[in-house]
Amino acid sequence: MKKILHAVVFTLTTFVLPISAKAQEVTDTVAANRYTVHSTMFGLGSTNQLESYLSPFEYTGAQISFLRESLRMTRMAQGRISYQGLFDGYVGCATGPEDDGNELGGSIGYHAGWHYHWTPSAQWRLMAGLQFGGDIGFLYNMRNGNNPAQARARIESAASVAAIYKFHLGRHSLTFRAQTDFPFMGAIFSPNYGQSYYEIFSKGNYDHNICFTHMGNAPSFRGLFTLDFPIGGYIFRVGYNYDIRQSKVNHLKSHVYNHSFLIGYVKHFSFHKHKEKNPNRFIL
């Protein structure tokens, strides 16, 4: 856990903050016009699931996912703070190490983030901020008769940093983004070590079923890399998303490691309330 904390502090102090001194002035017309970038992506990739409540073994398989992103500048801090909404979900099917059992898992979640922007050059935009959100999901072991499923629900607050790089390839303008979010505090639902769902839901016997999480007992993070490129007047996006969700509460170990290759499209919207003197639509 210390390593992770040091990493966060080191990133913010050595990488992000010094650049802020060189930040350029940003007009607030982008915020005033509610210039918004929407993207919808669909993914395909691998999943690795461990839920010691159901089985002590890791199940591996394939998953499909979606990621809907909304990004716009706000009027806060003279238009230097953006709002990002991430709506995502996945469904995966995994097989046990001996091919004797299958698990079906899925989740859906929403995270809202606010990032402060630095623009050290016309090509670079760096972002750091906080994210709040949660997700609900399930894991169903098709083989277990008596404790076949585990419900998942969590809320979390996360530190989020991103770097955006805009460049040209020939006549085409491309945008690369790298973002990582690491939750540092939250709460998670979990049955107790040997507690049955019959006891929780039929009898109403609760026992530490809402657990406080932090980077020590739930070291989780998400990395998102995307590349936007135009084709025939439309903007498409390809990306890679790794979503690492882990927890160790009530002596129960759980993880979901999802790796997805994503493809989708991007749409830019604005209301044009104010005329932009120097149009700068470079958010993403």
Partner: peptide, 25 residues
């Protein structure tokens, strides 16, 4: 921005990614 800062960023992410995995015996 210098490129080495980007390398540091990526290395940090990789470092975080490799630490703190929760697995069973």
């Amino acid at each position: 921005m210098k490129l080495h800062t980007l390398y540091i960023y990526i290395m940090l992410l990789a470092g975080i990614s490799c630490s703190g995995c929760i697995r069973e015996d």
